[in-house]
Each structure stands twice: as C-alpha cells, then as structure tokens.
Design a protein around this nucleic acid. Sequence first.
DNA 1: ACAGGCATGTAAGTCGTTACATGATTAG
DNA 2: CTAATCATGTAACGACTTACATGCCTGT
Lengths: 174, 174
Amino acid sequence: MSIRGAILGLLTERPMTGYEIAKRFDHALGRVWPARPNQVYTEINRMEEKGLVEVVEIGARNARRYAATEAGLEALTSWLLDRSPPEQQLRFDGLLKANFAFALPTDQRRMFLEAERRFWIDQVSWIESQMKHLPDDDTETTKARRLAAEAGRDLYRVMLAWSERYLAEADRPA
Amino acid sequence: MSIRGAILGLLTERPMTGYEIAKRFDHALGRVWPARPNQVYTEINRMEEKGLVEVVEIGARNARRYAATEAGLEALTSWLLDRSPPEQQLRFDGLLKANFAFALPTDQRRMFLEAERRFWIDQVSWIESQMKHLPDDDTETTKARRLAAEAGRDLYRVMLAWSERYLAEADRPA
DNA sequence: ACAGGCATGTAAGTCGTTACATGATTAG
DNA sequence: CTAATCATGTAACGACTTACATGCCTGT
C-alpha cells in the first residue's frame, strides 16, 4: 500500500485536494512511485471510508480538501516501519533490461544503450532542477526531502555511469 | 510486460523449465524484478499460446523445458527497445519512504533509518557474493551481467550512503 | 465565448500477490 | 519411509493502467 503511505505523507505537509495530490505525483513523486489521478481519487475515497483521512474544507468547484486523521498518522507510521515484502522491494525494469542487453545484435545494442544514456542524463538534470526548488529552511521536512533527492540523483548517476561504461566496452570488443 | 521479457531473456541462455525460471527470480533477478512461481507458470502458458516459447523436452516428473521461438526473440528485442511508460519507470518504495521519514518521531526515525542501513548493507553484500559466482569468461552474456551487477551494487551503496548520512544528520539536529 | 486548467469519477482489463492444492522423484 | 525438492497449477483478490466521461471556474 505504498500509494496510501505517500498520500498520507503528503497530507502531513498540509491539507490537499485529490487534484493537488495527483499533481504532486505527476510532477515529482511519480519518478519513484508513479500514480495516475484516477488511482489517487479512488484510493482517497477508500481511505476516507476507513477513517484515515477527512474532509476539512470544501472549496470552489466542490473541491474537497483532505487532512490525515489520527488513525491516518498511525497508518503512515506503520507503513514506514513495515519491512515485509512486497514492501521494501525494488521493481526496476532498467536493471532487468541491463541483464539482457547482450541479447541484442550489436547495432541495436548501441541504440539501446544510447537511448538509456540520454534517458538517465534527463533524469539527473530533472532532479537537479527539482533540488533548486526545495525550500531553503532547516525543517525536518526539508532535510528529508533534500536527502531523498540527493539519493535519487545519485541513483540516476549510477545508471548513467552504467550506460557509459557499457558503451565504452562495446567500442573495444574482446 | 517485464516478466515476459525477463523469461525470454533467461531462455536465450538455455532452455529451462518453469521451475528453473522461478528459481532464477527467487535467487537473483527478484532483487530487481520480483516474480512468484505461480506468476511464472501462468505467464509461460500464455506465452506458449502466443507462440513465443515452445516445449523442447519433457523430462522426469513431466517437467516441460521451454525455449524461445523466433517470435519470442523478436518480442524480447522489442521489449528491450520499448521506452513507453509504464516500461522504463522506477517503482521504488525505498526512495518514497525516504521522502516521508520526517513524519516519524525522532526515536522511531532512528529505528527506521537503522533498519534501512542494515537492509542496504545486506543487499550490497548479497550482490557482491553473487558477483563472485559470475562465470569467468568474456562472452557478451557475462559482460552484460557483470555490468548490471555492478550497477545494482552501486545503487544499493547509494541507498546505504543515504541512510548513513541521514543518521549522521539526526545526531546533530539543527 | 471559449480555451485551459481545476476537479472528480466509472468501467474494463491486465498485472501481481496470497492462499490453497496436488503429485512425482530423490536423498538420507 | 519420510522429508526435501521438483514441478505445476487454480481461485480470489488487490493494485495499476487505459479509456472514457462530466462539469465547474478563471482569465483573455
């Protein structure tokens, strides 16, 4: 239930509408855990039924703004501390494909690796631009986000380095 | 359809039974793309219907040993080159949780980060032990697997560094 | 007035997990 | 002979994607 945890985590910052939460996934969180708007809406409704969130304001266009309840905060804590599979599992098809790149003929492997390289360059520069927009304060929230962003950037750099090393090895075959 | 690609990739090494494929996920591939035996079996059956794999041998206990067909190899290539979402997306709840660690009270955050640290140490040492068992040859297969393993190890090291930096920051609060 | 963004949903289908179930063979 | 491993499934459910649908409000 990672999406549930993520929604609750976002709501600890401030109350939000489903639309705003969906935007956060779209613009930022989606790079580590994608979620589409409709999934956000259906999940929030289920969470409201279970008493994890509650409507704290109804604005223009009948926009419902949610906040986490006490039960919601407990659910957030237990999600963070939950180490049972399939929580705490990487699902990373980039590394999976990396294992099987040998199966491509040489020219297509080059194309594949160059596309990978461009992709990871994009990811690195995207996250670096995101880091500039982090608030310039010393709160726990900002600290956690800054450290997470740095880890994300470094993960992308590892994949970038992988693609470049592979390309270099492809240049001088055994 | 990452599982389909992974199965086809494994079958390029040599023909295998569903059981053997499931073991590979369990022992190695599952660290980047988990799959349970039943999912492997159902997927292989669907792939056989579609002509992507074929039975090349029936052994003891009626074990069916599969190989990739021509169509299967094409499917593998197009999976590797496919860059459309939700392919090519990270789904990494570790980084997601990293963003929300601030929501835990200080003592629980320590516990959380120390558990993270132990977890990533385990991952690093697991993959390092795996790397020792890679065949000592110079084939493309081995090269791809070695580079992928190194990337995996470095990814785990990034997360390990993240947990340690966070723990260090927690020691000297702002 | 109309385009663009705000705001929310439903329905169908696929992918993945959990739980349950069965039987054959081999090693000790 | 009995435990472990080999070998394969089915059923139910939950998570996620894709496609479709609706209407409100604000700025130009």
